[in-house]
Amino acid sequence: MALLTTENVGIAFGGLQAVGHFDIALEENELVGLIGPNGAGKTTIFNLLTGVYQPTEGQIYFQGKKINGKKPAEIVGLGMARTFQNIRLFKNLTVIDNIKIAFQKELKYSALSAILRLPAYWQQEKVVEDKAIDLLGLFHMEEDAHKLAKNLPYGKQRKLEICRALATNPKLLLLDEPAAGMNPQETRELMETIGFVRDNFHLTILLIEHDMNLVMGICERLIVIDYGMIIAKGTPEEIKNNKQVIKAYLGS
């Protein structure tokens, strides 16, 4: 059974059909690229999958369960996490607090045990603290744990956002242009990290990227959209030679 399936999903903003007839199926542990020119509807698709927008048509199934109409936080609880194109960190909080907030499933103590500082509070806080440090370690960011998120350099902010998404313990990770604004060196490193994360956490990853060459390198499968419609699906090889894709990217 596929991890995520969408059936004929679409959304219209007023008269504008931003996305239409969107059908995909993602298998477990796949790394799939979602590409398309500016304004094609890529981010909108992420917003549909994660419950930020409600589709005006079609169904979305995650692990066999229909998730249309659910709130974003509920969908995260089911195992879908994301990052944002324009980084959305909790800027004035420390790096480690950013991650602790994402450990919603881990922390169960009641408000009463928090206020009375009962053992449950200390135990669970300790567990989460250790887990957060471990996660940061994977990205070589342990030393940044107590810095404010807004004081991190850009590349690290992107990594922190991925870290924070991983803290929710997802099965499916949606990355919206994680390499935007990075230099080629940082981008290469990031792509390695993404591959590493996929293998280490046994995740399925759906990756939005502008740069065709970049996704060609690491994705097994690509989905290309233009004007909200899928215009091609296939391996990087197939996509590279697809006439419609070339036309969409080069314009006609």
């Binding site: 930020v52 709130k71 944002f84 959305r88 960190l89 909790f90 994402a102």
Partner: peptide, 13 residues
């Protein structure tokens, strides 16, 4: 800090 981000990491805002 950011309601949308909070919701996106599982905080029922």
């Amino acid at each position: 800090e950011d309601e949308i981000a909070a919701e996106s990491v599982g905080v029922p805002t």
